Computed example of a mutant assay.
Amino acid sequence: MSGQAPAPVPTDVAWARRRRALAAFWRDYRANPAGLYGLAALLLFGLVALTAPLYLGPQQLSVIHADGPVLAPPSWEYPLGTDNFGRSMLDLLIWGSRMSLAVGLLATFVSVALGALVGIVAGHFGGWSATVMMRITDWFLVLPNLVLAIALATVLSRSVATVVLAIGLTAWPTTARLVRAQTLAVEARPYIERARALGGGHAHIMVRHVLPNVMPLVLAQTTLLVATSIVAESTLAFLGLGDPTVVSWGGTLQQARAAGAVSSGVWWYLVPPGLAIAAVALSFTLCGRAIENVLNPRLREAR
């Protein structure tokens, strides 16, 4: 019939549903002031890190070309003072944000990807394979993450990739446990049985049905793990296990310790990178808690 409206395209319907879900998520997220403060701080840190190459060059960070006064206190010319090589602490702080944020995000991606894979596979298949994977997960859980990361960073070569792997390979068990529990809950729903009855294989069920339902939990866990990863990267760099050729907040603290800034009272060498690490970790934690409140109905009802 000519007057009949055309049938909606399935892809258009799916995208409209996603847009409504995102709008509802943002509406609930805005109701959390702490989450908004954390998001604003992260956007500021991200903007500073991305635009750093536009106004900072290699000579400003080079030890050889440094021409400023050594360990000078904050002044109009050097707002955060200088280090023991005469470099501006403000320049080091800005450039160090690139490495600290990059390592934190990459290590979190490795950790969350590994944990989600183990959790989904263990929750879907069950049986002896799930028992073995969960016992391995428990073994990693009882080990101190920092000690294991230090051991890996000591054995492998000193590089950024080593730090990423050392953090990512030690922080995944918590994600695996959470994702497995969520996978078991999803697998118990009726539409999973219908998918199996219609011939859906293991890969189809895990990718098309289980993964979308555990993604909100993975997203919340990711934002919380980034803060832990940034602190772990700073700790490894502070202990001298990072790449000495790159500038990071933890590396700056390690250089300050080696230069005797603590005993000399050169607080401007220690305080800025320490506060930056704390601010970024707090911002990610605030965002993670806000996302968790939005995605978890029980936490929403408790507010």
Rank of each mutant, 00 (worst) to 15 (best):
A7D: 04
D12F: 00
W26Y: 06
R27Y: 10
Y29T: 05
R30C: 06
G38L: 00
L42C: 08
L44G: 11
F45E: 09
F45M: 12
L50W: 01
T51C: 10
Y55D: 11
Y55F: 11
P58H: 05
Q59V: 09
H65F: 01
A66C: 06
A66E: 09
A72W: 00
P74C: 07
Y78M: 09
S88Q: 02
L92N: 12
L93T: 05
G96C: 10
R98G: 11
S100W: 00
S100T: 14
F109W: 07
V110R: 01
G115I: 04
G115R: 01
L117H: 05
F125W: 15
S129Q: 11
V132E: 11
I136D: 08
T137S: 11
F140A: 10
L141F: 04
A153G: 04
T154M: 08
V160D: 03
V163N: 13
L169G: 03
T170G: 12
T174S: 14
R177V: 15
P190S: 11
P190T: 02
I192R: 01
A195H: 04
G199F: 03
H202Y: 08
M206Q: 07
V214F: 02
Q221R: 07
L224M: 12
V226R: 03
I230P: 01
V231I: 10
L241A: 08
G251A: 04
L275R: 00
A279W: 00
S283P: 10
F284A: 08
L286P: 12
E292T: 15
R298Q: 15
